[in-house]
Design a protein around this nucleic acid. Structure first.
Lengths: 297, 297
DNA sequence: GTGGTTTAGGCGAACGTTCGCCTAAAATTA
DNA sequence: TAATTTTAGGCGAACGTTCGCCTAAACCAC
């Protein structure tokens, strides 16, 4: 393998000190245009790339994120997860990070695995996928005091810094919550069938309604596009239904739609929280997607 | 985050020099049992873990392997690949390595991506999956002169070590199985000639047919692209053949195509298993949910 | 000119390892 | 006991960065 090209090589070619090269690269100092050009051409001519090991050592960060994924439970390989994996890889790259996969042989292994990765400073943080209720990984990682994001929700009392809510589970939970409050006629403003995310969330609605054995009036499942306007228009139609068919709760796919719904509710003379409940939804760290009758963000 | 525990911390607690600790850890020198015990207990008590960045810098190796996988075309996720990914992660771990995922946005990006990873010494080598004929990644990596193995073979003159699913034997077995059941008119839905995997599997078909000394009607070897749709359309044409030329069994390259075939069979009024046999490949999870048990490999 | 402020860029130090050389003491032999 | 070999383990150096301090020259106002 070819010899490493280091800052010093660049420096001697450009006729400056190697520390100066480092600073030029990261724009940390003012240099005369002439020097900057000299350094930049030297970098280009030599094909210099900062050495990751050196950077990691110095900055005490690996620029690596550990990704924990469940090894495909037998018959149920999920394209969503594959998609998710691809997304995080792309996104991490945008910030100069990479994704590191690691094994997780047995349940008892969990502690050792994560401890090892963290103490060896091999990763800067973790992404967990398929987090379920009472996920054993969550307490372990929390004890290690390291940044973590999870895809899926764990309800075991740890205020995990940020949580990505799974659409299906999230909407289902929202609906369950409404059911628990006594709602029986629950409508949903869905997205066109082409939307995968929309389908996922709609499935959550069906899940929860079926679970509660509640009938679904075809009118309650609205499909459409847009944000505030869509919410406003669709909600008006729902509120125009005869009282017996009129929903007492409206579930939306995203907060901006919920805002439109709330506007419509008010302009029709109803009161949010008393006459009708509205829920929103967001992909960002939202633990609270339902506030009885009121979605505030 | 807690302060790093380094060799020096361990050393001062054990009353030796830090370099000695390093050597004890890797059994590179003889030490008196007494010293060894002192060092080992110090390590345990402090919870010392070698810092990966330091090791990487010193040893000039990242202990990371880059894994290039195709981001799941459309909705078709392959359980094989998922399995494969899991296996390499486990296996790498056994040798103290980890797997690094990296993005590959566009074809033109390929060179930059790999060059970056190699020059920055971020990875020690690569594993490529889904390698096919004329895979653009192969020449790029070979030029970088870095270790690489691939899953699937590319026949373009580079001696890249590889593993692969033996499609030839697999399909041949399937055909033999059908022959043993008394089938004589066996059709195959192949892929375009540009697909190496497809060529392999088709070769298995020829092998087995020749072995059984069965004639092959040119109409029985269909070439096409796609999944369910392809299976559906191609099967319909096969079923439209006059009875004497109509195949009694259809071999497909992948389960999703088989599903299309089965739909076509049903819609033409035939019964799977009685009038016609269908085989798949690669054990898609869906296969278990399809009504008439699909014979797959 | 004198004194004060800005600026470009040099320089030492540190991050945590591993490697190889070196030495003093212990073990062996004569 | 003296000469020789073996051994345990100390020590300096290097891997390639980044950070912060420092200095000499350049600039400015009087």
């Amino acid at each position: 393998m070819a010899k490493n090209i280091t800052l010093k090589d660049v420096a001697s070619r450009a006729g400056v000190s190697y520390q100066t090269v480092s600073k030029v690269i990261r724009n940390q100092i003012q240099v005369t245009p002439e020097v900057r050009v000299r350094v930049e051409t030297a970098i280009r001519e030599l094909g210099y790339r900062p050495n990751a090991a050196g950077q990691n050592l110095r900055t005490q960060s690996s620029h690596l994120i550990g990704y924990s994924w469940q090894p495909a439970p037998q018959n149920h390989s999920s394209p969503i997860l594959e998609q998710f994996q691809h997304s995080i890889v792309e996104c991490a790259e945008d910030y100069g990070y990479h994704i590191l996969l690691f094994p997780q042989r047995s349940a008892r292994d969990i502690h050792a695995t994560y401890e090892e990765l963290v103490h060896a400073r091999r990763v800067d943080g973790f992404i967990l996928s398929s987090v379920d209720y009472n996920d054993p990984r969550v307490p372990v990682i929390n004890r290690l005091n390291v940044p973590v994001v999870s895809f899926g929700r764990s309800d075991d009392g740890f205020a995990t810094p940020s949580v990505d809510v799974d659409g299906r589970v999230g909407i289902a939970d929202a609906v369950r919550h409404l059911v628990a409050q006594g709602h029986e006629r629950i409508a949903i403003l869905a997205w066109p069938e082409s939307s995968r995310v929309g389908a996922e969330r709609l499935a959550g609605y069906w899940d929860a309604m079926a679970e509660a054995e509640l009938p679904i009036d075809p009118k309650w499942v609205v499909r459409g596009k847009g944000e505030i306007d869509y919410g406003y228009d669709a909600a008006q139609k729902l509120l125009d239904l005869p009282e017996k068919r009129r929903p007492t709760a409206i579930v939306t796919m995203i907060d901006s739609i919920a805002i439109g719904v709330m506007q419509a509710v008010e302009s029709c003379g109803f009161e949010i929280g008393r006459d009708i409940a509205v829920t929103g939804f967001d992909d960002l760290p939202v633990a609270h997607y339902v506030k009885p009758g009121l979605t505030t963000l």
